[in-house]
Design a protein around this nucleic acid. Structure first.
Lengths: 226, 226
DNA sequence: GGTGTATGCTTACGATGTACGTGAACATAG
DNA sequence: CTATGTTCACGTACATCGTAAGCATACACC
């Protein structure tokens, strides 16, 4: 029974950068971005805080790892059909990835450096390739990429952040603080009229609506798909 | 010379919620979001940290105040012309506001509650009113609002955050770390081809490009302006 | 004058990121 | 086999963060 006699083989399995980042992502999804603490992550992987620094240089590095990790979740649609269909699938997939880790958008927003990880850039490669299949030149392809990417990220930000009411307007929270008071003052009639629709509109439908607007515009400008 | 004998009248002018928030916004614009510290804000307004709590309940409240303050910077365009022109001006103005405080987007992203301040909601009121002028019904107006708002916020996020390279590709930083290495590996040919355009494209032009796509789609769907 | 209400200051506490030093497990050379 | 160098986890320590609590000061109104 002496703990030294029989070597416990590998009492705890070796820590890994991936294990650290996975734990951090799990914490962020569950308890928000401010819950991602070196001590908390360490506890989650069964280790002391300082041990994490053997696998990440910084907390900054850890957060970068989370970003790359999320981008790696992107599942590439097949590229069989026309570019419009592929674009639609790619856009939906990007939205799915962002929505499945709702707090990662804040990370993206506060991180002012571009991604360098291969996994993180492959969705961009996919997008540019698909846009190129529409017969759009390299320079315009960049424009289209920024426009579509911006639309997707912004839309998810609005739908998950609920900056302008709507998400929090469940019936158990009929008047979030001063909002109702401001509305009752008679100003903001359009906002007041829009509130019930904010709560009831189907996000999927809205997303497709705007996406179709952009795609229709592109098709009109660059010709119909083959 | 006794400091008590001659009352210095008003040696420091009274602190105000607005003064606190203004200072915080200034710090955030200058040194980033993580530099906004209670102690730092206090020092900037010439006061000790705890004195701020007479004017804001939390740091949370302070950040909310920054958000509202930024929204209040919105300068409403005149609503003389047709709704398309008004929409274009409103969108550009919103982008201007967001770009003039580049770090506020991260604040918006990590704040999961809707705005309740009257000043913060007036741009939304303006947008909904303008959309309504196009003859779009209340329900669809909400969709259009979300689509346009998402596009604007997402576009600014991509152009100021530079998530996908481009901004940081100035000539003094030709290869940000591993990026060049990854590209040289031969994968990501489309990204490699796009990089020079990322750096050279005019953001204003790109923004108008996507905005026109959306507006053209709306006009096609809802009829031409009066 | 006295008195109450704002408002600012000081001290203090727990949590955070991380610099630094120690020690155990393992690989390889002699 | 021992000796030695590398890797990795641990523990301690410190500056800085948000903020709770108590005290001090100044002004409004009687």
């Amino acid at each position: 029974m002496s703990p030294k006699a029989e070597a416990p083989a590998r009492p705890r399995e070796r820590l890994t950068r991936n294990r650290v980042i996975d734990a951090a992502l799990l914490i962020m999804d569950a308890d928000g971005i401010e819950a991602v603490t070196m001590r908390r992550v360490a506890r989650e992987v069964g280790v002391e805080a300082m041990s994490l620094y053997n696998h990440v240089t910084d907390k900054e590095d850890l957060l970068d790892g989370i970003c790359a990790r999320v981008m790696a979740d992107f599942r590439f649609p097949d590229e069989e059909g026309d570019w419009v269909a592929t674009t639609r699938h790619g856009a939906s997939e990007w939205r799915r990835v962002l929505k499945s880790h709702p707090n990662v958008l804040a990370l993206f927003a506060e991180r002012n450096k571009p991604m360098t990880d291969l996994d993180a850039l492959m969705p961009m490669e996919f997008a540019l390739r698909t846009i190129g299949r529409a017969g759009i030149g390299e320079r315009e392809a960049v424009q289209v990429f920024n426009v579509m990417g911006g639309y997707i990220m912004g839309f998810v930000m609005m739908e998950s952040g609920r900056m302008f009411g709507g998400g929090t307007m469940e019936k158990d929270t009929p008047s979030p603080d001063q909002m109702a008071h401001v509305l009752a003052a008679g100003q903001l009639p359009c906002v007041a009229a829009a509130l019930p629709h904010l709560a009831s509109c189907d996000p999927d439908e809205q997303f497709a609506f705007g996406l179709d607007l952009l795609l229709a515009g592109l098709q009109a400008r660059y010709g119909l798909p083959a």
